[in-house]
């Protein structure tokens, strides 16, 4: 009697369990369910908590559900996809344990040392497990830009988070200088094109408010079709906009432009663009305008202008002399016998 009731109950439950599992999978991935959520689905007859418990327990045994404890002590569940659950089945218990820990770290990955502390398994066992997991292509080793020497593992199917890769500026966990400087140059050129009045292209220039898409497209076209020409022609006649001008590009404009111009495949957020603009500020190429909201290019003296190149100190040989500290009349180096002066005066 008892056994049959249990048997029928388990048979019922297996139907319920499946129904419950299916229902939960329909929800967005990684959603967490608490007891009430599961009961409210109306699958458990009569909302009987003990039936629910049995179903959930069965799901957990099969590795299809995971229990998580909320900070307030209540339990919530997360459903696991069938194929993920299958992975556990073929793993040894140690491997499964390690795999679960690596999985729980998601896109951040986990350092082997931390992993060892958590699972409390001997190093050699750990190494073997990791090796087998890696060979099965379940997990992969990644590099963290912050700690390049650490061995960090994460699930093979995931892409590392930006914290690990260092964001868009890193290629193969190395800061990509060429990429950054090319972007800087492009952005500077864009900002410059918006910062000065040019008598040639007056009417078309959008002046006020936000740029519409069409404006941007047009600007882009202008920018790319004749960049050299505009550059040389405009240098001499960069005129300031009148005071109170509000048309200087903001971070948003620049970000829009960068994404539309197709300079790069890397997706850059506004924050990344802001960082680039800051660097341009530090380079003295652009500066903040309109109360820090927008950016404008710094006017550079026309090419060949003497004011742009150096000053009195650095032009004289002394300003760049490597032995300037030793230089003294009667000393090992002196002005009267100075080689640098010789070449400088011969020019």
């Amino acid at each position: 009697m008892a056994s049959s009731s249990i048997g029928s109950a388990s048979a019922d439950n297996s139907g319920l369990k499946k129904a419950l599992y299916e229902k939960c999978l329909q929800a967005p991935a990684n959603q967490l369910f608490n007891q009430h959520d599961l009961l409210d689905m109306g699958i458990i007859p009569g909302g009987n908590p003990s039936t629910l418990m049995q179903c959930v327990q069965a799901l957990m045994d099969e590795g299809l559900a995971k229990v998580l404890i909320q900070p307030d002590g209540s339990a919530v569940w997360r459903m696991v996809k069938q194929e993920d659950a299958n992975k556990y089945k073929i793993l040894s218990p140690d491997e499964a344990l390690i795999y679960s820990h690596i999985e729980s770290c998601g896109r951040e990955g986990i350092w082997t040392k931390n992993l060892k502390n958590k699972v409390n398994i001997h190093q050699s066992v750990l190494n073997r497990c990791i090796k087998s997991l890696e060979s099965r292509n379940y997990i992969k080793a990644i590099k963290n830009v912050k700690y390049p020497t650490r061995k960090i593992y994460m699930l093979a199917s995931l892409t590392p988070s930006e914290d690990i890769t260092g964001g868009p500026w890193f290629t193969d966990s190395e800061l990509d200088n060429e990429f950054i400087s090319a972007l800087l140059d492009a952005i500077e050129q864009f900002v410059t094109s918006k910062s000065f009045y040019r008598s040639t292209a007056v009417a078309e220039k959008p002046r006020k408010g936000k740029l519409s898409q069409a404006d941007i497209q047009e600007a882009l076209k202008n920018e790319f079709e004749t960049p050299k020409l505009r550059h040389t022609k405009a240098r001499s006649s960069l005129l300031p906009f009148p005071p109170g001008y509000k048309g200087y590009p903001t971070v948003q404009h620049v970000a829009n432009w960068v994404s539309l111009a197709g300079i790069t495949d890397v997706s850059l957020g506004e924050n990344d663009i802001r960082q680039l603009l800051e660097v341009l500020c530090y380079d003295g190429r652009v500066e903040k305008a309109t109360g820090g909201l927008a950016y404008k290019a710094v006017r550079r003296p026309a090419e060949g202008d003497e004011a742009g190149s150096g000053n009195g100190l650095t032009e004289a040989p002394c300003g760049r002399c490597p032995v300037f500290n030793l230089c003294e009349e009667g000393g090992p180096v002196s002005a009267s016998g100075c080689e640098y002066f010789n070449t400088w005066l011969e020019i």
């Binding site: 009195g312 100190l313 004289a316 002394c318 300003g319 300037f324 230089c327 009349e329 002196s334 002005a335 009267s336 100075c338 002066f341 005066l345």
Partner: peptide, 17 residues
């Protein structure tokens, strides 16, 4: 200080020349 020194050196050099 560098400026003073460089100026002095320029003058010294002028004298030498």
């Amino acid at each position: 200080q560098d400026c003073y020194k460089a100026m002095a050196r320029c003058l010294q050099r002028a004298n030498t020349e």
